[in-house]
Structure formats: structure tokens, C-alpha cells
Write a protein that binds this DNA or RNA. Structure first.
Ligand SMILES: [Mn+2]
Ligand SMILES: [Mn+2]
Ligand SMILES: [Zn+2]
Ligand SMILES: [Zn+2]
Lengths: 153, 153
DNA sequence: GTCGCAGATGCAATACTTCGCAAAAACAAC
DNA sequence: GTTGTTTTTGCGAAGTATTGCATCTGCGAC
């Protein structure tokens, strides 16, 4: 079962401290936003806006640096859903992959466990272990693919 | 068989004209560079440098806009091999996909025809037609994956 | 060839991201 | 609590990408 929001934040703070990073106001502020939006993917500017809505002021450069620092300790990562800037979220419970339709923009979530077997072939043929956490899979969804028996409307 | 460089450029010019775009000096200059580096993937700044080395001067914003225009008519596209800026090339003869090792940076090319069947499952389960031309597949190569019987050295 | 106009360009302004550095804060030792 | 060391921050500057707009140009009509 999922952690409550406050115990999630506590666990995050633990991880920051135990990784040798200091627990500062900007880092708390960013953690708070990420915890409150656990189901979403936020851009740096969305994170910054949310921090400001909480009545706190931090510098944009601090947001960029903090996210990079958090990524280094495995606390967060970002994905690219298209040509847009990366979108960030907590790494915990991130067990799905994104199919993004280049035509209508819709995103479909697919459990990672369904995707991983596809890449088994790459492992066998090339010894290459694909990691599926950085880029979405782009393409055309059922509704937008005219020849597929799933027409729009 | 591949076209010679001059007939490749002629074919490109044809495509520009027939798509309703005008054939201007900056566009010729960029086409020339792309044709001369048909086997490579160039960033916008590499393209700009190459244009300047040919004794021509165009504005950076023109490079961005031209590449976007060319992409719209299917003449070029770009890929992201990692966190770096996108890399551009002519669309003709682009029949492979990139496996990029996040550990050592090496890129392995895989024929697209080998990869497409993997995504057949997504089509059957989700009606999603994956297009494999925008993002590289990131992961760990055989040499960098310690537990795989392909140690470094 | 000239003319006219839609489309393309250069330039400046803006937006977004990264970097260097001095000041400030975290935190361990006392 | 105070002190000292190291990390982190905000700020300014630099680097990179995008946008608006006046000027220029490709090219079709004549
Ligand atoms: Mn892109
Ligand atoms: Mn990225
Ligand atoms: Zn769609
Ligand atoms: Zn490697």
C-alpha cells in the first residue's frame, strides 16, 4: 500500500540526509510539491510555481540544481513525453511507461512489466539492457490510426 | 543504390520546391551540409558551423526555422540520443534505430526491421503504432553490464 | 526582362537553462 | 548554546532556443 503523504515526505527527507545531502528550505519545498503531486509529472516551471503558491521563494537555478541532485541519488527522475521540456516526478512507484500519440497528444500508460519482455530480444542479440525510464514511446494511438478499425468520433 | 551527392542535392531541391517552399540561399546552404554529412547526425550548431566554413553567413534562428520547415515536409528529422540537443539528418535511408549506453556513451545501430516486431504487441494490445524515429533507446551495453558475461577490458 | 506579393530572413527582444562566485546556511564537534 | 567546515543558495552573466516584426527575396504573372 502507498505511504501517506506525510510519511512519504519523511521517507524522502531520510533519503536526502542519508545520501549526504543537506536538508534545506528549497529542498523541503520541492519535496513537498513532488509529494503532493505524486500521480503527476511536473516541469521545472510547474514545480517552481507550486513552490511559490506555497508562499516560498526560491531561485529557478535552484530548482534545476535540486532536481539534478535528487536524480543523482535516485529520488526523482524525468521523462520526455515529446518535444516538450522534461517532466519530473518521484521515482517511487514509477512502474509504468508512456505511449504518447503524436497526432492527438494523448498519453497511455502501460505497466513496465508488459514492456520489458519486448526488449529481451535486444538483450539476447546485442547484450543491451534497455532502461525504459527516460523517453516515452511515440507513435499513433488507436483513435488516430485511420487504417486500424478504431476511427475517431 | 545510393544517390551521388549532387543528384541527392538535386532531389532535395525538387522536394523543397514541390512542397511549396522556396529555394533560398540559407536553405541551399543547409541542404548542402546535410548532403555532405549523410552518414552523420548533426546538431544545429554543427550545421551552422559547417555553413560558415562554406563561406556563407546565416542567422542561427534561420537554422532552427529551416530545420523545422524541412521536418514538416519529411525531408529531415531529428533524434535525441540522450540529454544532448537533438541531432538532425536527412530522412532518406534512415532505417536504423539507436541503442545508447548510458554508462560509456557508445551507440549501437540496429536495423529498424529488427525492432519493429517488438512493438507489434503494443499494436495488438493498445492499437498503438509506435514510431521509432524520435528517441534513442537508452540502457546499458554488453561491455558495461557486469552481470552479463561481457565484462569490460 | 519587370512587377507584385506571399513567404523567408535577419535582427532584436524574450524566454529558458546553465554556470561562476560570493554570501548564507546546514550540521558536526565542542 | 558557539564555532568551523563544507555545502548550498541567490544573483548575475553567459549560453541556447524561440518569437515578433520590418525588410528583403523567390518566383509566378505578365
Ligand atoms: Mn525532439
Ligand atoms: Mn532528459
Ligand atoms: Zn491519438
Ligand atoms: Zn557501455
Amino acid at each position: 500500500m502507498a505511504l501517506s503523504r506525510t510519511s512519504l515526505e519523511t521517507a524522502i527527507h531520510e533519503k536526502i540526509r542519508s545520501s549526504g545531502l543537506r536538508l534545506t528550505m528549497p529542498r523541503r519545498a520541492i519535496c513537498s510539491v513532488l509529494s503532493a503531486h505524486e500521480e503527476e509529472f511536473l516541469t521545472t516551471s510547474e514545480i517552481l510555481s507550486a513552490v511559490e503558491m506555497n508562499g516560498l521563494a526560491i531561485d529557478p537555478s535552484t530548482v534545476y540544481r535540486t532536481l539534478d541532485d535528487f536524480a543523482e541519488i535516485g529520488l526523482v527522475h524525468h521523462i520526455h513525453l515529446g518535444s516538450q521540456p522534461g517532466q519530473w516526478h518521484l521515482t517511487v512507484d514509477h512502474d509504468h511507461q508512456h505511449l504518447v500519440c503524436e497526432s492527438c497528444g494523448r498519453t497511455t500508460l502501460v505497466p513496465t512489466i508488459e514492456i520489458e519482455p519486448l526488449f529481451e530480444v535486444l538483450r539476447r542479440s546485442y547484450g543491451f539492457h534497455a532502461s525504459l525510464h527516460h523517453f516515452a514511446i511515440l507513435g499513433t494511438c488507436a483513435d488516430c490510426e485511420p487504417s486500424d478499425g478504431h476511427p475517431h468520433g
